[in-house]
Amino acid sequence: MSAKIKKIGVMTSGGDAPGMNAAIRSVVRTCAYHNIECVGIYRGYQGLIEGEMKELNARSVRNIINRGGTILKSARSKEFRTKEGRQKAHENLVKNDIEALVLIGGDGTFTGGMIFNEEFGYPVIGIPGTIDNDIYGTMSTLGYDTALNTVVEAIDRIRDTASSHDRLFFVEVMGRDAGHIALNVGVGAGAEEILIPEENLGLERLLESLEHSRTTGKTSSIVVVAEGDKSGKNVFELAEYVEENLPNYDIRVSVLGHMQRGGSPSCYDRVLASRMGVKAVETLLEGKSNYMVGVIKDEIILTPLDLAVKGKSEIDKELIRVSEIMST
């Protein structure tokens, strides 16, 4: 293994996700293991432009593996989208002798990294951190497993109320462009219907399904709705539409919102973050750049950043079929 790189920077960008701190810890301690300096860059690309950074060592990241969010903070940066902003960022890296970057975030983070690499030839490696699990090149992103557990627990609690009062609950979960959370928690929580962006089942089919459930003896129901569902109505309009057409239902809406992002990461996310952090640093030491670290069939792999950004994560068709059978 080559040890030409002497100092690596690590940053988090975009929406926070449980497991980001575990990934930061892994990057820092892998650097320490290989006798490389590590610098934490605060507030993503904006902090890089403003030179907001601090040297980290193995003790700097103690007791963070169990914490949600990110100790390095995160922020959107309009300035980094400009050539001038990126030039400032590069100057700060050179001034601080930082020779490579580990970027923890989603497709926006990786897009910025690719542009930075093209313009300055600067080595970058990405670690996917987003609860939506919508990144090509990995079966699971950091935070996804934790978000599933958080949402299932919330829906279990909602079902207690639904059963007690014979109510129909529409529960909106995150997933603007991908329905991975909705599909998996829908199956895991026993939802009667699951509405996701990838499958437009139609409003009439929803009405038929709910009416069938009622005539076969179900006195309460849960419908999980991804925020990006393509039914043409938001979750409140959807509830109103069903109430107008099926007046016998007592309907409530619950939008889980940003609670899905928070909380202590699951064991799976902590272990995955640790594995990805090691791979990211060692990939840079091997002289490779412009890759994203991912996991496929429990094997840590590398995917070119452009494929990770341009590719589309596939919804599990077999799980859709399972959900249809389970809602009978």
Rank of each mutant, 00 (worst) to 15 (best):
F116V: 00
G69P: 04
I194V: 14
P128E: 10
E99R: 05
G190T: 14
T111Q: 07
L206A: 01
E119W: 03
E318W: 15
V94E: 01
M259H: 09
A308P: 00
D160Q: 14
M114C: 13
V28Q: 08
I158A: 03
E37L: 11
T109S: 11
N133V: 00
E193Y: 14
L206Q: 03
K4C: 11
A17Q: 04
E198N: 04
G47H: 06
K78G: 12
M11S: 03
T82M: 13
Y291E: 06
E99C: 04
N200M: 14
D250L: 15
T70Y: 01
I71N: 01
E211N: 15
K288V: 08
I194A: 08
S213V: 06
V27W: 10
L142Y: 09
K218G: 14
K317C: 00
I222S: 03
S274M: 12
F170L: 11
V255K: 13
E227R: 01
I181T: 01
I296M: 10
A162Y: 09
M326S: 12
G121S: 03
A191Y: 12
R81D: 13
L101I: 03
K279I: 07
L206Y: 04
V185M: 08
L285R: 05
R81K: 12
T161L: 09
I300W: 02
N57C: 10
E118N: 11
G263I: 08
L101Q: 08
Y241D: 14
I36G: 07
V151Y: 04
H34W: 15
G137I: 08
L302E: 00
K95L: 00
F110E: 05
E240M: 13
S231A: 13
R167G: 03
K83C: 15
L284Q: 05
G277E: 06
A182V: 01
V225N: 04
E299A: 09
R86N: 10
E227Q: 08
A182M: 06
N63E: 13
K78F: 14
F236H: 12
M139H: 12
G51Y: 04
I222V: 09
G51H: 07
I155R: 02
V187M: 12
D132R: 03
G15R: 02
S327G: 12
A22R: 02
G40A: 13
D107E: 07
V293Y: 04
G186Q: 03
E172G: 07
E324K: 14
I135H: 00
